[in-house]
Amino acid sequence: MEDTQWPVWEVFVQGNPGIPHKHVGNVHAPDAEMAIQNARDVYTRRSEGISIWVVPSNAISASSPEDQGAFFEPSNDKPYRHPTFYKIPDGVKYL
């Protein structure tokens, strides 16, 4: 059998109930079950989490850094999406 370092899995840890899982790093493992066990040993040695997700690294698609400007540009010229765009007279409450 060929010696291998196994595929890479990205690791997401939920720190506390109710908050989102956050990317913390990756591990090498032969399957999802062992990836979760390795992730526990590497990323939650000091009570950093209550739940772990693992995803094969090659399953993640990402936006491209080169296109960052153009890609996110459509949201830059729409300040009216923010509540602070609107002027409300002093004295008007609960708005």
Partner: peptide, 16 residues
């Protein structure tokens, strides 16, 4: 450590 890696790979294949 090589046999451990091989055993883990074999176990993963069996589970699959």
């Amino acid at each position: 450590g090589r046999w451990v890696r091989e055993a883990a790979t074999a176990y993963a294949a069996k589970q699959a």
